[in-house]
Simulated scan of single mutants.
Amino acid sequence: MRAAPARGTTQAMTRAPDILCIGSVLWDVIGRTASTMRPGADVPGRITRLPGGVALNIAITLARFGLRPALLSAVGRDAEGDDLVTECARLGLETGYLYRSEDLPTDRYMAIEDTGGLVAAIADAHSLEAAGSKILRPLSDGTLGNAQTPYDGPVALDGNLTESLLAEIAGHPGFAAADLRIAPASPGKAERLLPFLRAGRGTLYVNLEEAGLLCQTAFDDAQTAAQALVARGAARVLVTNGGKLCAEASRTETLSACPPEVLVTRVTGAGDTFMAAHIAAERAGAGRAQALDRALAAAAAHVSGEIAS
């Protein structure tokens, strides 16, 4: 597999990024309808193509808060990949650390949403999985750090990476000094975060269903779920539950808050917006309760459509 540096690398790397966003960087193809859909339904609506992927969604929101995120991911050297890199740069994201391969196509995510939210989705992130640890080279070759001088800034990490790579990161010397913030990407990938529970590393951002999968049980509320995750080894965790009470727990404290009531117009990317807003609030000096409130407000604005895609 041959790879070349991302275009514009020299100019883009003149200033260190504020945060690294590691994981899926792809095109979101989203179909939305004002109708209620059933299996086999064929309804009118709108179809859009937007930059997406968990790591990219987080990075875009972080840039809106004035931070300079860098992307570590795999993007093909196809036309879709060139378009995606150009759009990411336009949005203020650092693309010079991307792994770009001649042999891997740019990943895609396809979803359908109706008035009730997400109907179905398919994530084609095979190129990210195939690239594996190659996307982490800047953290070991001295570009961003190495085993002797590890990167010591914040890292937003998503569960679209393979189980083996996530397990490697949990104990990787290149992440020893990093402030790890981790999201599972989807309920189907929640159990990929188990190495971080075992290692007691990082801050986990999960929803109620994902918390249940990690604990192998079902929870009725976010506060109980957050406390259970800490009991299983998590250093710190935030558990969301749609429009219901959200909770944060650590080994010393648990707090909770309710999100603002809004009209839901979309759901894709809400969790990513919540995580990014929380990280940005804490980097700006907000306390735990204030950071949680800001994150919930940002996620509510996203699902209501107040923040443009």
Rank of each mutant, 00 (worst) to 15 (best):
A226F: 05
A286W: 02
S127R: 09
E80R: 15
T149A: 13
R64P: 00
I279C: 06
A4H: 15
V54Y: 00
L204I: 05
G171E: 12
L104W: 06
A147K: 06
Y97C: 02
V75G: 00
I279N: 00
Q11H: 15
D293Y: 03
A121S: 15
T265H: 15
A289C: 04
A4M: 15
I182G: 01
D82Y: 12
L238G: 03
V262Q: 08
T61K: 10
E306H: 11
L91G: 02
A125M: 14
T61H: 10
S24T: 07
G96Q: 08
D293R: 14
A130G: 06
V29Y: 06
G31P: 04
A218C: 12
E248S: 10
G66C: 12
K134V: 03
S101H: 09
M13I: 12
G117S: 11
T9I: 11
V230N: 03
G8R: 03
Y97G: 00
G45D: 08
G287Q: 07
D18R: 02
A156Q: 01
V262C: 08
D103Q: 15
L128S: 03
L238C: 10
V264R: 15
V25Y: 02
S133T: 10
L263I: 07
L296A: 03
L144K: 03
D18W: 02
L67P: 01
S186Y: 02
G8S: 11
G53W: 01
A185V: 09
R7T: 12
P39I: 08
R38K: 14
S309V: 11
A190K: 02
A284V: 02
A190C: 09
L197A: 04
R137S: 14
V119Y: 08
V267E: 14
A16P: 09
P39G: 14
N57L: 09
L91E: 07
Y205N: 02
A235P: 00
C258D: 14
A34D: 13
R32N: 13
V303Y: 04
A298G: 05
P39Q: 11
R46P: 00
A177C: 10
A298S: 13
L238H: 10
M37S: 14
E253V: 12
I122Q: 15
A247N: 04
A270I: 04
D158W: 00
Q290K: 14
L213G: 09
T224C: 07
G23A: 05
E80C: 07
G66Y: 10
L197W: 04
L98W: 04
V267C: 15
R68G: 01
A34E: 11
T33H: 09
E113N: 11
D28S: 09
Y151T: 02
G242Q: 10
P184S: 10
V237L: 03
E168Y: 03
A276T: 01
R38G: 11
S164Q: 12
A183C: 11
A121H: 09
V155L: 05
V262D: 04
A270Y: 05
I47Q: 10
